[in-house]
């Protein structure tokens, strides 16, 4: 139980650090910490397989993908300065206050309800797999279609358009 609260506090603090950093790489490193903390929360909640997936897919694949893109964009020190300029305190105050009001309402509603408590459930990967390929098999197929369209979309959008000029036209221009 104490593990849950410590990991949750770490996750919240790391996420706050993510949203206040100006340097993108620093923010991504804090994001990895946040994902690892949430993985510990999953483990405490009795979902060890999901904790492993969280580390592998979120903290591994997705963050590495974003870091690759940042490396391809080749951002310099000016981008950090510009980020500082973009995040002015005046701009920040309205959305933060409104979101905090909504969060307070949410906490009030959740704490008012009688929801019970979690007592060491431990659902292993076998139960998840049986459910995934039993009643949820249509969802698995839809996920396959989604990933396929993701691959096609990423390839189509990420392609650099080369200028195609026929060699006779090139000769004429010279």
């Amino acid at each position: 139980m104490i593990t849950f609260y410590i990991a949750g506090t770490v996750a919240v603090l790391a996420t706050i650090m993510v949203i206040t950093r100006y340097n993108m790489i620093h923010a991504l490193l804090y994001l990895v910490v946040s994902f690892l903390a949430i993985a510990i929360v999953f483990h405490v909640l009795g979902a060890p397989f999901m904790a492993a997936l969280e580390v592998i897919v979120y903290a591994g694949a997705i963050v590495v993908l974003i870091i690759f893109v940042i490396m391809m964009l080749n951002l310099k020190q000016e981008s950090v300065e510009q980020e500082k300029q973009w995040m002015s305190r005046k701009l920040l105050i309205g959305p933060v206050i409104l979101s905090l009001i909504l969060l307070a309402e949410l906490v009030y509603i959740i704490s008012g309800a009688d929801t019970g408590s979690i007592e060491q459930p431990l659902l292993d990967a076998k139960a998840v797999g049986l459910s995934l390929y039993g009643p949820y098999v249509i969802g698995v197929e839809l996920c396959g279609i989604l990933l396929m369209s993701g691959i096609v979309g990423a390839y189509h959008l990420g392609r650099q358009k080369k200028k195609v000029v026929h060699r006779f036209l090139e000769l004429q221009e010279k």
Binding site: A47, L53, L65, M72, G153
Partner: peptide
């Protein structure tokens, strides 16, 4: 196990979304 199944679906969607989103950003 339904909650964890839904988490797997969310994970799949996040992976597809981030790849298409990064291609758009490029």
């Amino acid at each position: 196990a339904d909650g964890q199944v839904m988490f797997i679906f969310i994970l799949t969607m996040a992976a597809a979304e981030v790849s298409v989103g990064l291609a758009l950003i490029l």
